[in-house]
């Protein structure tokens, strides 16, 4: 092999590695990206059973039912629609009725959403950002419904 050929081989090797990486990224995106939905979105677009999604909203007041063992079922609402969710495991510290929550999981049938993770993030306003944005846009959630001591902090600081 001449020097030039050697160099070409090295460059081709590098390129093919990058190509493999790009294909891998595209494959992984198609496999593991979860779209974010609110309950009223689900009324509009059907999500086929088995597709991983993130479902966000408020935990409907009075909907939390503890079943056998550590299975908990509750409803996630955004004011106009609500979706029943069941989850087995320990709920996060900040999980409360009437507070924002993001759950990730799949619909087993078109009705039952089985979550394998529930997030109530340690956010400044006790509200996951995606949920807060949407609820604000829909006018369901107001600043004051966050914790009274920190709720308006963001807007006050200059």
């Amino acid at each position: 092999m001449t020097r030039k050929q050697k160099r070409m081989a090295v460059i081709a090797g590098g390129m093919s590695f990058i190509l493999i990486a790009v294909l891998l990224v595209m494959f992984a995106f198609s496999q593991s990206v979860a779209y974010f939905f609110m309950p009223s979105d689900l009324a509009k677009n059907e999500v086929s059973p088995g597709t991983r999604i993130r479902l966000g909203g408020l935990v409907e007041a009075g909907s939390v039912v503890r079943g056998a063992g550590s299975t908990v079922s509750f409803k996630v609402t955004d004011g106009s629609a609500s979706v029943p969710v069941s989850y087995t495991g320990i709920l996060p510290d900040l999980f409360r009725e009437g507070q924002g929550v993001v759950t990730e999981g799949v619909f087993t049938t078109s009705q039952a959403f089985v979550a394998d993770s529930v997030l109530a993030k340690h956010d400044e306003n006790y509200m996951p950002k995606e949920v807060a944005d949407r609820l604000k846009a829909d006018g369901v959630w107001k600043e004051s419904e966050g914790s009274p001591t920190t709720g308006a902090k963001g807007s006050v600081t200059r």
Partner: peptide, 25 residues
């Protein structure tokens, strides 16, 4: 005004007693 220390205290009070919404925007 809200930028002053006094204004801050007013806002803090508002938050404390739950008058938060509609005030700070």
């Amino acid at each position: 005004p809200a930028e002053t220390g006094e204004g801050q205290r007013l806002l803090a009070l508002a938050r404390e007693i739950g008058l938060g919404e509609g005030i700070v925007q």
